[in-house]
Computed example of a mutant assay.
Amino acid sequence: MEEKKMETLHGLVLTDISATITVTSNGCTKKDDFKIELTKSLPPIATFIRVKPDNCDAVAHSIDLVFSLKEVGAAEFKVANPFVPGPAK
């Protein structure tokens, strides 16, 4: 069963080809654990949703996940996710 949770982000880097988000991992977080919901507006609003929890027992740390702008669905967008400082990488 898919558990949907808006992910708290620790950072976002946008280039002309990709969006890199920084999230917390307990050791098992993968890009495939996320999906992106895009709300139509001007500009569109992207929400990064964790669909699979990371239940591993490693020390919490920050990791970067890279999504192409094609995966995001827009080259220019707002982000709905909250941002907070995260654990060290």
Rank of each mutant, 00 (worst) to 15 (best):
residue 33 D to E: 14
residue 24 T to N: 14
residue 31 K to R: 09
residue 43 P to C: 11
residue 27 G to M: 04
residue 64 D to E: 04
residue 12 L to G: 07
residue 3 E to M: 02
residue 44 P to N: 04
residue 47 T to K: 15
residue 63 I to K: 13
residue 47 T to P: 04
residue 72 V to F: 02
residue 83 F to R: 12
residue 59 V to C: 09
residue 27 G to T: 02
residue 78 K to M: 03
residue 55 N to V: 08
residue 30 K to W: 08
residue 17 I to V: 12
residue 6 M to E: 15
residue 32 D to N: 15
residue 63 I to W: 00
residue 80 A to W: 00
residue 33 D to P: 12
residue 11 G to E: 00
residue 53 P to E: 04
residue 18 S to C: 10
residue 45 I to T: 12
residue 35 K to F: 14
residue 76 E to Y: 15
residue 18 S to H: 14
residue 42 L to D: 15
residue 89 K to Q: 07
residue 35 K to A: 06
residue 53 P to F: 06
residue 81 N to L: 00
residue 76 E to R: 13
residue 50 R to L: 00
residue 51 V to R: 01
residue 64 D to P: 00
residue 73 G to H: 00
residue 72 V to A: 01
residue 40 K to A: 08
residue 19 A to S: 10
residue 26 N to K: 11
residue 89 K to H: 13
residue 7 E to D: 01
residue 1 M to E: 07
residue 60 A to G: 10
residue 47 T to Q: 02
residue 23 V to T: 03
residue 10 H to R: 13
residue 80 A to R: 01
residue 76 E to N: 14
residue 25 S to L: 07
residue 47 T to S: 09
residue 38 L to M: 05
residue 36 I to V: 09
residue 26 N to A: 12
residue 66 V to T: 15
residue 77 F to N: 13
residue 86 G to C: 02
residue 36 I to T: 10
residue 17 I to N: 13
residue 45 I to P: 03
residue 35 K to P: 09
residue 19 A to T: 02
residue 62 S to A: 05
residue 45 I to E: 13
residue 56 C to N: 07
residue 79 V to S: 01
residue 74 A to P: 00
residue 30 K to Y: 10
residue 1 M to S: 08
residue 87 P to K: 15
residue 20 T to F: 07
residue 19 A to E: 01
residue 84 V to Q: 13
residue 11 G to M: 08
residue 32 D to Q: 12
residue 3 E to H: 05
residue 29 T to L: 12
residue 63 I to C: 05
residue 8 T to E: 04
residue 61 H to A: 11
residue 13 V to L: 07
residue 88 A to H: 13
residue 65 L to R: 07
residue 44 P to V: 01
residue 82 P to Q: 14
residue 56 C to K: 12
residue 27 G to I: 02
residue 28 C to S: 11
residue 19 A to R: 09
residue 70 K to I: 01
residue 49 I to R: 14
residue 14 L to G: 04
residue 59 V to L: 08
residue 73 G to Y: 04
residue 10 H to I: 10
residue 83 F to M: 13
residue 51 V to G: 02
residue 86 G to N: 02
residue 38 L to A: 08
residue 25 S to I: 06
residue 51 V to A: 03
residue 42 L to N: 14
residue 22 T to P: 06
residue 86 G to R: 03
residue 81 N to D: 10
residue 21 I to D: 06
residue 12 L to C: 05
residue 15 T to I: 04
residue 44 P to S: 06
residue 79 V to G: 03
residue 47 T to Y: 04
residue 47 T to R: 15
